[in-house]
Write a protein that binds this DNA or RNA. Structure first.
Lengths: 151, 151
DNA sequence: CTATTTTCGTTGCGTCTGCAACTAGTGCAA
DNA sequence: TTGCACTAGTTGCAGACGCAACGAAAATAG
């Protein structure tokens, strides 16, 4: 087996590990957020993304990117959250195709209540990953990342 | 903002980055495998996991773990692949609750055809991640992982 | 200024997912 | 042996997803 084949296997292994850690964290978050606050992980992600904009608007397209969702899924997700009164759609004047979304006070409140759950479960899930031999190297690498905003 | 808050933010940032890289890779793989071979990513993952067992059987439960899927989803996924003649269910004698799955020749053949696509797209997706400033550190860390089998 | 292309968000449709409830088989205990 | 807890896999159900097709608004070409 040559160097090229090794590289292929390293990438495949890295991808499997990444997927395993992702699944571990997402499942834990999903259960906790859903059970304690009636929020799915993507819903929390959207509320959090809006909140980290410092009260500023966000376009559907940006939201889709932040939540790693398709356009259609984003439309329905925003509709869902709007129906629950957690955010509002705001038509924007300068580009009449665009639609901005904005957290409502209820949305901010729910987010603040859910955040401790999110942070705790994330911490626990990462600890569990670090305690799992084949996941530990990647879980450890996550801690080394510079916390600079994800555009 | 104290040290504890920093740690919370580091974890949150790491999780967002992980999710972003995961989504980038999965989306690219999904499109390519679906378009060129009619396989979804999980389907490919299952075939590959079975293949890496060196012709050995795998229980549904193991398969569920390997594919990061629930039991029910695994049942249906296996049913789907069985209907397409890519694998077979094998009842196991010593534990009559258990069901083993095994690749058929057609399954191995399709896997071998799909593997180059998978490897190529994975390489491209990782390259794209490394070219994206906020994803690059994590993408780089993946390359440093020791390619030891994921049990 | 009109025609074409592109971008943005929405909707119909088929598919896949997890949860909870269920059946069947195993293993331990009294 | 009988009873009970546990594990393995399947199924009904409701919800969420992506793709492709769509309409509306903006940008670009000619």
């Amino acid at each position: 087996m040559g160097i090229a084949d090794d590289a292929v296997e390293v990438r495949a292994h890295g991808w499997r590990t990444l997927a395993a850690v992702h699944s571990l964290i997402e499942t834990a978050l999903e259960r906790a957020l859903q059970g304690e606050h009636g929020l799915s992980v993507v819903e929390y992600t959207v509320l959090d993304a809006l909140d980290r904009q410092d009260g500023w608007h966000m376009r559907m397209r940006q939201l889709a990117r932040a939540a790693a969702l398709s356009n259609s899924a984003t439309t329905r997700l925003v509709t869902r959250l709007e129906d629950r009164g957690l955010l509002t759609r705001v038509l924007c004047a300068d580009d009449r195709r665009g639609i901005y979304t904005e957290l409502t006070p209820a949305g901010m409140e729910l987010l603040e209540r859910a955040r401790p759950t999110h942070d705790r479960v994330l911490r626990e899930a990462l600890a569990e990953a670090e305690a799992t031999p084949e996941l530990a190297p990647l879980a450890g690498a996550l801690r080394e990342l510079e916390p600079r905003p994800l555009r």
